[in-house]
Nucleic acid binder design. Structure first.
Length: 781
DNA sequence: AGCACGCCGACT
DNA sequence: GTCGGCGTGCTC
């Protein structure tokens, strides 16, 4: 007899282990590891989805095995998860401190999840679906079921659906031609002639000029039939793109290319300045491996996976490309996933989660902009795509390329140690393009009452460029910065009632919003504290800057791009297209405008406030600011016209800003490494963050100390534990947050200690305690 | 999660 | 006595 080990889809500590089920005889030959199943679970035998992770053969059915429940239903004909993916989930679990089922589900499109329902039936055969009942009705029906007045059937159904389109095909041309319609039936005659004209074609039923009754009549006469053909929901993405040929690599690019294809021994760190043509190297490398019959995986940050970016890959590799990012609907994601699964796609281009794409025979994995923090998922399972990429490259003996103009310190340090091989691109691929000139404006010496956000120099430069019909990009580094409302009289700042944070002003809706819990309230007329009518608006959101600029230059057309203007589905693209088409003079936005945009007519980039990211309570604050300034500077002078960059700052002496001006990654790396070494931060130390939340602050503190103690006891003297300290935003959603940061180098007991912390949260006395463990956290705010 | 079991107070 | 409230513990 065969039995199966199954991970059930109930993400809880208590159920986070394989459950054993009998495989019914009739399913025995069809069942494979990696398939989804429905299994009866718990006392009521309700159906839940599960994933088979192991199949065991039992020659004799013992008492122990015959008592096992049976798998109720197989959901797949072929496994949805490969052996490799099951292995990845195992490996992942050692450092993400999440449930196995969450790891497994991170690899599957959400359409493969099941919907659950319950069917109540009485003796007369009346039926009620639980999902369609109100809460009171549900309670009543449950009670009646307990009294055996009703029977209960558990239902589970996979959400999986494929889009099909119906086509008419004419069965027999001659027969149709000879078919006589009655004289009065003009419409039928018309339809008949239409069908004859389109004989041999697949005629879509959709948008047909003839009614359903017409179609039915001809079907009933046995003249035509309707066929359902599965169609791809993402088809449209690919059709519009025209093919493109490979460009010739320059000497530097060629060298990098030759290295990458020569060995899979070590990962490559491809360090190339903005405009040095990294993407073209990727395209060549991918083409090389495709020619060898292998596949390729390319990750890009979500934000830069614009249609232009996808198009570049589709243009080069056509139908073989699958695109995966969060902008796709669930159906579209599923279709792309299936394309990969059925081996129709051999190049996967996608954001973070695409690292799990079920491609086989991987030749190369490329992570572009590898320093981007978006490669780390900030909700459970908290994996880093780079770590998964290392595992997959090992499994497939594939080349791994990490590309960036400003590599993360972690990666660059590994390259210096020889764990990665460093490849450099120092020239701009377009030789006509010269590096932009970067200037720093010291805002401390600016006294400008009407326009606090703009220095004289920046205003002059904007006017100068616009007079020449050139375009300007202005960036507002909004991180940790937002506009707020304060009372001029007593200094009172309106705060969120649930979170310890000031509310952000939104002028378009005339409301105060909390960016953490979503609380919305009106703007008070009088100060809630002192009743004075002196409520004033402070800080500079993009809206405020836009207004300021519009007052200074009323004739200028400004496009604003931030979270508020890009909320709708294609807003992002539309704004960029408008700007690219020259419909506006200035593009004003938050950091989302810093990434990968290429507008040849832009000759000035202004950074309104370079400082705001600098003083955040995060050891990566300087690294982030430096990266951002380097990136945004790269937006100027992409073509023949010379570009200028102006950085406004209150900290002109700060090394991140000075070195960004010099465009000097090398020196920044050295300076930052010194700082990290002195304070024992990555890449010298590994980090784990433990976040503890409770609605009662004193309990949060007490538990935080307990947990810190528990960890401390199991670590060596060399490990350093910071905290517990309140989180930078100490209260959100009516919970108090505390954090512990563990810095360590080699600690064999750490994983066990952290698992023990998780065990602790299972105790009933800790029911209201929330603990999150984040290995190598990327964000501290 | 969601279901059963069990212990307690309020009620026919 | 017994119905139904909710706290507790378990699910192959």
């Amino acid at each position: 007899m065969k039995i199966a080990k199954i991970i059930v889809d109930i993400p809880l500590m208590q159920t986070d282990k394989p459950f054993t089920y009998q495989i019914p005889k009739e399913l025995s030959a069809l069942t494979e590891v990696g398939m989804r199943v429905h299994v009866p679970f718990g006392a009521g035998n309700r159906l839940v989805q599960g994933i088979i992770v192991e199949i065991l053969e039992h020659l004799i059915s013992s008492k122990a095995t015959s008592g096992l429940k049976k798998i109720a239903e197989l959901l797949d004909v072929t496994p949805v998860l490969t052996k490799e993916q099951l292995w990845l989930a195992d490996e992942m679990r050692h450092h993400v401190f999440s449930y196995k089922i969450s790891c497994l589900k991170a690899m599957l499109p959400s359409l493969l999840n099941s919907n659950y329902d319950k069917l109540f039936q009485d003796e007369k055969g009346n039926q009620w679906y639980s999902s369609k009942l109100s809460d009171e009705e549900k309670l009543e029906f449950t009670k009646r079921a307990a009294r055996h007045e009703l029977s209960v059937t558990y239902l589970a159904k996979s959400k999986e659906n494929r889009k099909v389109e119906k086509f008419i095909s004419v069965l027999d041309h001659e027969k149709l031609a000879l078919f006589e319609v009655k004289k009065a039936a003009k419409k039928r005659d018309e339809f008949k002639r239409f069908l004859l004209r389109h004989f041999g074609e697949k005629i879509p039923v959709k948008n047909l000029a003839f009614s359903h009754a017409q179609v039915k009549f001809f079907i009933d006469q046995g003249l035509i039939e309707i066929k359902e053909v599965e169609i791809s929901r993402t088809r449209a993405l690919f059709d519009a793109v025209s093919a493109d040929k490979a460009k010739k690599l320059n000497e530097e690019q060629k060298k990098a290319f030759d290295q990458i294809i020569s060995s899979v021994e070590r990962p490559y760190l491809l360090e190339g300045i903005t405009g040095s043509g990294k993407t073209e190297v990727y395209l060549h490398v991918i083409a090389h491996f495709l020619a060898l019959g292998k596949t390729a995986l390319l990750l890009v940050p979500e934000i830069s996976l614009t249609p232009q970016m996808s198009e570049r890959f589709i243009a080069r590799f056509g139908d073989q490309v699958a695109i995966m990012h969060s902008g796709l609907s669930d159906g579209e994601k599923y279709d792309e996933w299936r394309k990969i699964k059925m081996q129709k796609a051999r190049v996967v281009v996608g954001a973070r989660s695409a690292i799990f794409a079920p491609v086989d025979q991987i030749g190369v994995i490329i992570i572009d902009e590898e320093h981007e923090t978006s490669y780390k998922q900030d909700s459970s399972p908290r994996y880093h795509a780079r770590d998964i990429a290392l595992l997959r490259a090992k499994w497939h003996h594939a080349a791994l390329v990490l590309g960036s103009a400003t590599p993360s310190l972690e990666s660059r340090a590994r390259a210096m140690k020889g764990n990665y091989q460093l490849l450099r691109l120092n020239q701009r691929a377009n030789e006509a393009a010269v590096l932009p000139e970067v200037k720093i404006v010291d805002m401390r010496s600016q006294i400008n009452d009407q326009a606090a956000n703009f220095s004289q120099l920046l205003l002059e430069k904007i006017r100068e460029k616009l007079a020449r019909n050139e375009q300007v990009i202005l960036m507002l580094n909004k991180r940790g910065y937002s506009s707020f409302v304060m009372c001029r009289e007593c200094g009172f700042v309106v705060q969120c009632p649930n979170c310890d944070i000031s509310l952000t002003l939104h002028m378009d809706t005339r409301t105060l919003n909390c960016h953490y819990c979503g609380h919305v309230q009106g703007i008070p007329q009088r100060c809630p504290n002192c009743q004075a009518k002196k409520i004033r608006y402070y800080g500079s959101g993009t809206q405020k800057v836009q207004e300021e600029l519009e007052q200074l230059m009323p004739e200028v057309k400004i496009l604003r791009m931030d979270v508020d203007t890009t909320r709708t589905k294609h807003a992002h693209e539309k704004i960029l297209k408008k700007f690219g088409d020259g419909e506006a003079d200035i593009l004003l936005g938050t950091q989302m405008i810093a990434k990968g945009l290429d507008f040849p007519n832009v000759t000035l980039v202004g950074v309104i406030n370079a400082d705001t990211g600098l003083n955040l309570p995060d050891f990566r604050a300087s690294e982030r600011s430096f990266e951002l300034l380097m990136q945004v500077s790269g937006r100027a002078g992409r073509a023949e016209k010379k570009g200028e960059v102006l950085i406004q700052t209150f900290n002109p002496e700060h090394y991140a800003i000075k070195l960004a001006k010099e465009q000097n990654y090398e020196r920044f790396y050295e300076a930052e490494m010194k700082f990290r070494k002195n304070l024992s931060y990555p890449p010298y130390y590994f980090t784990v963050q433990v976040m503890i939340s409770h609605k009662d602050e004193s309990i949060a503190i007490q538990k935080a100390y307990e947990i810190a103690d528990l960890i401390k006891r199991q670590l060596s003297e060399k490990a350093k534990i910071l905290g517990p300290t309140p989180r930078p935003i100490a209260r959100t959603h009516n919970l108090f947050h505390y954090q512990i940061l563990v810095k360590y180098r080699f600690e064999t007991q750490l994983e066990a200690a952290l698992n023990e912390v998780l065990e602790l949260t299972q105790l009933k006395e800790n029911k209201e305690l929330r603990v999150i463990i984040d290995s190598e956290p990327q964000n501290f705010i």
